[in-house]
Design a protein around this nucleic acid. Structure first.
Lengths: 206, 206
DNA sequence: TCGGGTATGTGGACAGTGTCCACATTGTTA
DNA sequence: TAACAATGTGGACACTGTCCACATACCCGA
């Protein structure tokens, strides 16, 4: 009874349906990962007929890509937030180290609290643009490492390319303990693994 | 015209259809990853009606689980093979290090040469048994690390739990450079990242 | 040897999905 | 105001996983 009884229902404002579909897709991904992003369900949530989606996306894959980008952005956002909570001037050795630890912790925390979105973030079909901003996981990590060099904690000679092993170890931990084979280890065990991961990184930097 | 003209076609030997379905599933996964393991297509390959699959698996998920296990076994097999190619007595420091490097290299190589199977190996729905044998990626890694301790290369005090960061870094590299955001980096770049990964591990052990 | 029971395969059906086509409506612009 | 582009609708198709009832082949005990 919420609909205003027949009458040619007003069309939603421009671009509203598209945004709604993406938002709906994000919620679906949050619950069930990328596979749960089903086009028809998204249109149902928005309250529109399935075909309407094809006015905004050529494919289900295009919708999914949009959802994935949103998920990746949320991950980056949480990393930035975690880093922002660390006080201390840029270049301060202790603060620099804590900031690196903070983005790593935020990464793992996101993977644990939002397994669906985390999986979606890395389930991009085809190609990911990422153009423009470097407010991405990799960009943030690189910033943190650059600060570590500035602060004199990390030898400049060892800086080049070190973001990749570090990203790998954090991502690997997230995946293996999340959806992966280590998923049903007891909570305490998982904490220990995370601590080992962080320690291993620290070890590799000094 | 290849069928022997009507007549009640002989039933296949016991357990043959089941094995065939798994094999077909593996081939599908090899080409397109876990999502490509579609039950009806597998039955088509085996030459049987879709419903026949339900005499051997309760679910498509159960078939998929079987396929995933097979994929994981193949990964373990390749790691074991890579390790086996390294000569030198157990406990020899150099050989121990080369063996660790070999299983890491085999892991990355498998992920690159068989992206579909690699993805499938870690796409197990629900729970993974793995009971019995420890001829698994983790088991092999643990063996290699134990040997490293025996050989006096790795301080016994740092042995406990170190398999997890190491597995994580290798797995993370495989995922990020395979299906992940680093997937379309140029070949040379990928090699460099792999080398950095291995170096980072060596650094973390000594 | 035979007869029944169990394992296995078949045929037909259903709901759900992505996607296509033709049509209707709206909002905008010349 | 008339034409046009953007957007939404209705109906259809092939494909998927899964269910039910039925048919057959094989095996084991009498």
């Amino acid at each position: 009874m919420s609909e205003p009884a027949a009458g040619p229902r007003r069309r939603r404002p421009r671009g509203d349906v598209r945004a709604g579909l993406v938002a709906a897709g994000v919620e679906l991904a949050r619950t069930g990962g990328p596979d749960a992003v089903v086009l028809r369900e998204a249109t149902r949530i928005v309250g529109v007929v399935p075909n309407a989606a094809y006015r905004h996306f050529t494919d289900r894959d295009e919708l999914l890509a949009e959802v994935c980008t949103a998920a990746m952005n949320e991950l980056a956002e949480r990393m930035a937030a975690g880093m922002g909570r660390v006080r201390g001037k840029r270049g301060n050795p202790g603060a620099a180290q804590r900031r690196l630890a903070a983005i790593g912790a935020a990464y793992l925390e996101f993977a644990q609290q939002e397994p669906g979105l985390f999986a979606a973030a890395f389930a991009v079909p085809q190609q990911h643009a990422y153009a423009g901003t470097n407010r991405t996981p990799l960009g943030l990590l690189q910033d943190a490492l650059d600060e570590l060099v500035e602060a004199g904690v990390l030898d400049p000679g060892r800086r080049e390319g070190i973001e990749y092993p570090i990203w790998s170890i954090v991502h690997g931990t997230a995946v293996l303990t999340g959806r992966g084979p280590l998923r049903d280890a007891p909570e305490a065990e998982l904490r220990k693994i995370e601590a080992l991961t962080m320690a291993f990184i620290g070890n590799g930097l000094t």
